[in-house]
């Protein structure tokens, strides 16, 4: 038996919206420690990693570790049936091999309870070992600013160059019709820091050129949290982390560009 209760369905709705553009089907792992998933896009260029810790749930029970395969598009449609402020219960019975994942949504005044279930699927997916890494530069910035920059530069080109130095981070793109850039200056964190402030921890300047198509998908996680951190080292995958308050994170990894 697994049973996880989230105080607000909206968090889970936002998580699925953040993942479903990049990944259509995924295995979800339930363990004593919480719920997690790791999945690559079909081209193996990008990877997402979700962690929801057991102590972030209102209640959490997992008698035996289970891996359940879901179609994220179907899950997204199902979650549209939940009110944002509904309490959400996810449960599955593994007595005879779980073949469905069950959801119940209870309104804040407890006067409405709805129940839905999602058919599970067998998914044969590769998983990868992600080593712990020290990055040369970590940019911590507003997630809404990140979304805006990705949107703005997508109107100019197909790739963005991210150049981090001690002074700031510059996002730039160029295309057939022209070019554009946005510079965010490093701000020392001080009391009363604006939510839009950008800070950069850096050992040496780092530059990456990345396809905007993937970054647009990652930006779908912005509604989950105010901040995003971009972790960069030359010639290794870039990691974008969106922390989900009190409960976990979504991390996206994107392979660096290579000369074709």
């Amino acid at each position: 038996m697994i049973e996880a209760v989230l105080a607000q369905a909206s968090i889970f709705k936002k998580i699925v919206e953040a993942l479903k553009e990049l990944i259509s089907e995924t295995n979800i792992d339930f363990s004593e420690a919480g719920i997690s998933l790791q999945a690559m896009d079909s081209s193996h260029i990008a990877l997402c990693n979700l962690l929801l810790r057991d102590d972030g749930f209102k209640s959490y029970r997992c008698d035996r570790a289970l891996t359940l395969g879901v179609n994220l598009n179907s899950l997204s449609k199902l979650l549209k049936c939940a009110g944002n402020d509904d309490e959400m219960r996810i449960f599955a019975n593994d007595d005879s091999g779980a073949d469905q994942l069950n959801f119940s949504f209870e309104s804040a005044n407890s006067e409405r309870v709805s129940e839905f279930s999602l058919k599970l699927m067998d998914i044969d997916a590769d998983s990868v070992d992600i080593p712990d890494m020290d990055y040369q530069a970590i940019i911590d910035m507003s997630s809404s600013e990140f979304s805006r920059i990705i949107r703005d530069l997508s109107s100019v080109g197909e790739a963005v160059s991210i150049d981090a130095t001690k002074q700031g981070v510059k996002f730039s793109s160029a295309g057939d019709a022209g070019k554009g850039s946005i510079l965010l200056k490093h701000q020392k964190s001080v009391d009363g820091d604006s939510a839009l402030a950008t800070s950069i921890e850096i050992n040496e300047p780092v530059s990456h050129s990345l396809a905007l198509k993937f970054l647009s998908s990652f930006a779908k996680a912005a509604p989950l949290t105010d901040r995003v951190s971009i972790h960069m080292t030359e010639d290794v995958p870039v990691m974008f982390e969106f922390k989900i308050s009190e409960i976990g994170h979504i991390r996206f990894y994107l392979a660096p560009q290579i000369d074709d």
């Binding site: 081209s43 260029i45 396809a211 993937f214 990894y253 392979a255 660096p256 290579i258």
Partner: peptide
């Protein structure tokens, strides 16, 4: 023209 690489070149598949 540069192209996006694949993660398989960086992370070990298990």
């Amino acid at each position: 023209k540069p192209a996006q690489g694949r993660l398989d070149a960086f992370f070990k598949t298990s």
